[in-house]
Design a binder for these strands. Structure first.
Lengths: 217, 217
DNA sequence: GTCTATAGAATGATAGAC
DNA sequence: GTCTATCATTCTATAGAC
């Protein structure tokens, strides 16, 4: 289905792609549910209905497989902040960013959990990402936020703490989903509840930093 | 040092208490850094400078030791919300609660991480706590928040999402401390930075829910 | 590329001397 | 209560047939 038909190996390549995607998706869930050490290659193989040795054919080590899972969610989050560049007003830029982060919490709960796990344990595997990519990314967003403050579009708040608040509140709905579901009577959020959570989080944060709203820039 | 001297076994009891406390404190750190499965009884024993068999003398299984660690941080958090009952205004009650939660993130970072890990993995060990104690505790706090809303002291927001926001933002400074330290130039927060973080988080949340401030009730 | 079988290392828990 | 020695199990990774 994915082969481009102009190469003799395209069919094989397509199968390879599918198997890779299957392994990554399954590994993401198992790592999220059991942690790096708690997840076993056997469990991932069983869930993907593949022999364990096949996993080692596609990924040399358990750590290599894990690292790809972590990199995936990380890049999805980085891309979610493009509104910082495309939207002029803090209301649109931050509002869009928060809403996208909430969507990702819903669509990629396992990836978010794996990331949380990794950072909680001191980021032993992706420490370099924090020091390079994340640091640069954060600095560039801080500049934008400081510009808004200088223009009087939002209150004077430490941009870092604002980012931490957005990260923590949005990811909480993914990482602590089990606790939230339990407090929701054992039932996961439905569409309306996700929409309400998103609106509530967005409103409190935007109001909390004194965003001048409804101003057509 | 802890014996009360009125019992012949008090000296032995005191030693027992100290050993128990040492094991629990060490286990909390090792579980936080490596997860339940990643933490080994050998590693805990080595760090506590005790033979591994002694751990099994005090705690029958690894899981029993882990459970006590989780219960400890859980109870500390429950107690931190007494301001809901002792303070009349939402500004004082919520402000005190948020500040206490931030203090706990600083004083008990390992316990917070162990809890986060446990919930992320679906709370396999302390699931009963979520369904009983936490559910009842949450319901009772929601009642208080709804009363504030009915009295027009805060905006109409879903009390659950307000609680989730307080939990996630405050615990983020413990659970993601490694990421925060990295973004702080590799240096952990000092006293001033903790104070600033606490003030920033408190201000944004209280303003975000429209708390009528400075009103001497 | 797929699969079976297994090597080699680590872990939770216990037995039993002191 | 403390500690050494050890058993039974489990896991990562690989060898080698197909």
């Amino acid at each position: 289905m994915l082969q481009t038909a102009d190469k003799p190996t395209s069919k094989r390549e397509g199968l390879r792609r599918e198997t890779l995607a299957l392994i990554l998706a399954t590994a993401e869930r198992i790592f999220a549910e059991h942690g790096f050490k708690g997840a076993t290659m056997q469990a991932i193989a069983d869930e993907a209905k593949l022999p364990k040795a096949n996993l080692h054919y596609y990924f040399p080590t358990k750590q290599a497989l894990y690292r790809q899972v972590v990199e995936r969610i990380f890049n999805i989050w980085l891309d979610a902040a493009e509104s910082f560049d495309t939207e002029a007003s803090p209301e649109d830029a931050l509002g869009t960013y928060i809403r996208k982060k909430m969507e990702i919490s819903r669509s990629h709960p396992y990836g978010s959990k794996v990331w949380a796990n990794e950072v909680i344990h001191g980021a032993p595997i992706i420490h370099d990402y924090l020091e390079t990519t994340l640091t640069e990314w954060t600095e560039s967003r801080i500049e934008v936020i400081e510009r808004w403050m200088a223009e009087g579009l939002i209150d004077a708040v430490d941009p870092r703490h604002l980012l931490y608040m957005i990260w923590s509140t949005t990811q909480h709905y993914a990482d602590f989903s089990h606790q939230i579901t339990t407090l929701n009577g054992g039932v996961p959020f439905d569409d309306a509840q996700w929409a309400q959570a998103t609106e509530c989080v967005t409103n409190i944060i935007l109001k909390g930093i004194g965003v001048r709203r409804g101003v057509p820039s």
